[in-house]
Design a protein around this nucleic acid. Sequence first.
DNA 1: TTTTGAGTTGTTCGA
DNA 2: GTCGAACAACTCAAA
Length: 470
Amino acid sequence: MIALWWIRRDLRLADNPALQAAFQFGAVIPVFILDPDLLASTPARRQAFLFAGLRALADDLRQRGSALVVRKGKPEIALLNLLIQSGAQAIFAEEDFTPFARARDTRMAESLPLELIHGQTVHHPLVVHKVDGAPYTVFTPFSKAWKSLLSPNLSPLPAPDVFPPAPFLHSEELPSSAENPLFPAGEVEAQRRLTQFTTLPIYHYAETRNRMDLDGTSSLSPYLRFGTLSLRQAVCAALEAAQGAPALAQNQSAETWLNELIWREFYISILYHFPHVNTRAFNPALQNIPWRDDQSDFSAWKEGRTGMPVVDAAMRQLRETGWMHNRARMIVASFLVKDLLINWQWGERWFMENLLDGDPAANNGGWQWTAGTGTDAAPYFRIFNPLLQGRKFDPNGDYIRKWLPELAHLPANNLHAPWEKGLKVSGYPEKPIVEHALARERALKAYRWAQASQSRPGDDRFVTQQPDRD
DNA sequence: TTTTGAGTTGTTCGA
DNA sequence: GTCGAACAACTCAAA
């Protein structure tokens, strides 16, 4: 018997249930389909990381006596051709929970022998639910239920040693792409980072994770995004670190990181059960915020020239590297949504276009949280003060100095707010494009108006939308 | 069915 | 400079 292992967001050999299932079926042919529709919606930077990951995977496969088969085209057609050419009787793939993938896979399963295997999360989204069967919409109870479902002997699956001989199939060339120096591709690198992080930094994570000037985070997000590392591998390492912690504080720090992983699963679950979040607010009461459609302010935000140094530093880090520190993501998101009063969906799109780790579930969840429109969202009056945030989480200004070199010569005391001392830097705005105190009042007013507009049925400009019911 | 406790990540104001 | 309260109700989840 012969099986195709259809690789999508699981660029790894270790802990891969779909690959294991294919192995149990028979000889395995690993395939990747370059779907033009998918590539069209994948920015060049993420494509490059994907291709580099595939090259690394192809190397790993070669060492095990196998070969990656790459084909271009619609997956229906490409896979049908591969079935015919190889004589394979089944296709195994890791179940992908995004709406795009679910629609595609449902369509494919109608005409092809496609077996979807759970592996993207630790718990399938259908498994974590309230006693009444409904999905959770609040993180803390979700995480409690999620933890209670953990098997005591949870452990990752090993990578297969050797692939038995399989029919040879022609493979197309992968498009060439540059390696990202900050995020080298491949499973070996992902494992190296996980081991490095969970050996020591995880024990300081609770204190250092918010510091934009330090490397206190795991920097694993691009690898989790493409399945170079599985959530289960990360969770196992976190649990192991928590267990082996020398003291309570270190144990709690490891738990803090574990919670971040659970947040990933929470937002995957939210997008799975409430796909409408992809196109509108989760909370219908905040569907009608009177956004400012200000293209000029939006451009300033995107290009890192808002005049608020911490925001501009972060936006330039994003443009230059495809990654942004998590604390910085919250600061720039809050600045766009609350200070500039620009639709969170504009920011969501920009992040998806630029982030190496851009993932529909996590990105949407994060933006809706900041905007206060989501599940378990921040109260709308909780508005970040970008100046306080910057001073608190980049106390010496090192983060600003790194990404805004034109300000690097300023005294550390004035880096966060040069305008307060009348310091001018040529080529950089003299002062922020909005005054925070005024912008804050404006946002509060807009949000209050949106909530009130909900109970104004006569106003047909703002028809309130009811939540979807199946 | 009703009740009760709780809810990622903050800021501002006034004592 | 530090500290606690107010911010605004509301919904969720479970007993």
